[in-house]
Design a protein around this nucleic acid. Structure first.
Lengths: 163, 163
DNA sequence: CGGTAGTTTCACAAACTTGTGAAGTTAAGG
DNA sequence: CCTTAACTTCACAAGTTTGTGAAACTACCG
């Protein structure tokens, strides 16, 4: 039963497509999203290029591009099985949590732009005040996110110490 | 030369473009982002279609499309000044906080898809467990976000009771 | 070493997106 | 009611993105 063939629409394949569609809508490149979802839904959490190509019905070129992106952002690792010429792509589901939640870089940038804008608009103007408020909000949000992530790490460590 | 009405980049205009570019990169339609940023940086927090068209150098059609989107997601309101034929578009900066932070709908949807996927993959499989874990993470994140927003509202209420 | 399985790069065509001008619609003001 | 200012809709051209086939590259294996 370790035969994971999905020529027809298996439930697993449907899940992969559904979740990938969400990721895509949220801004991830389409092929990257599909590859990521496929890895997430695979039993070993790792697949070769050929397997991905077959399951997702895409060219090796598309797999290559998707994997390049995913490894760059740290969601996926590349491994080579000794004695084989094939790479295996492995989902890093721990870092995935971090990567996704760690949008603080984005928030930080926004905050900086807004602070700067508030300055040039003038603290005494309504526009300046409005923009400064918005900056405050993002600062608050960023701090909260960082704290939240920390809580997740603790929670996770308590629940499953060695994953 | 003389035709060019303030083609100069005023600091305000620069802020508008910078912030709009960020919003765009984060996934908002370009024109919507520019319109929103322009409203945010305007003194009254409201502009007419003509003003937007002129400041952003875009066609009325583009303004129309952007505003339709922004009103749909609740970031902007439409008002008609009595005795005028012009609409005024008003930034809802309070709701904007909410709208932006309230990604819980997104998170909820993801969570649902992941739970469902975990079910079909089977709780006894490695893939099922991995996907269930991911669902847990999003559940945690969503709860945290909701709480965080609540804290912001309290904080805001304490700081500026009457906005 | 040479053959070859596997991966990457590249140019390009197809598909999608975006902003526009112009025609169409609505309603205020005479 | 008719005129006209203001907004919206629509078809389309320009621009961008995406995935592919094919060629180029890499490094295992005999």
């Amino acid at each position: 039963m370790s035969q994971e063939q999905q020529n027809e629409e298996t439930p697993a394949a449907r899940f992969v497509e559904r979740f990938a569609a969400e990721l895509t809508e949220a801004g991830m490149q389409r092929m990257a999203a599909r590859v990521f979802a496929a890895l997430l839904a695979s039993d070993s959490g790792a697949l070769t290029s050929a397997e991905l190509s077959e399951r997702l019905r895409i060219s090796p070129a598309a797999v290559s591009g998707a994997v390049r992106y995913l490894t760059q952002i740290g969601l996926v690792g590349r491994e080579r099985e000794p004695g084989s010429r094939r790479d295996r792509y492995v989902v890093h589901d721990e870092q995935w949590y971090e990567t996704f939640a760690r949008r603080d870089q984005l928030l930080t940038r926004w905050e900086a732009i807004l602070r700067d804008g508030a300055g040039t608009l003038g603290a005494d103007t309504a526009a300046g005040a409005r923009v400064a408020d918005t900056a405050d909000f993002f600062a608050f949000l960023r701090e909260g996110m960082v704290e939240l992530l920390e809580r997740w790490r603790d929670h996770r460590a308590a629940t499953a110490p060695d994953r």
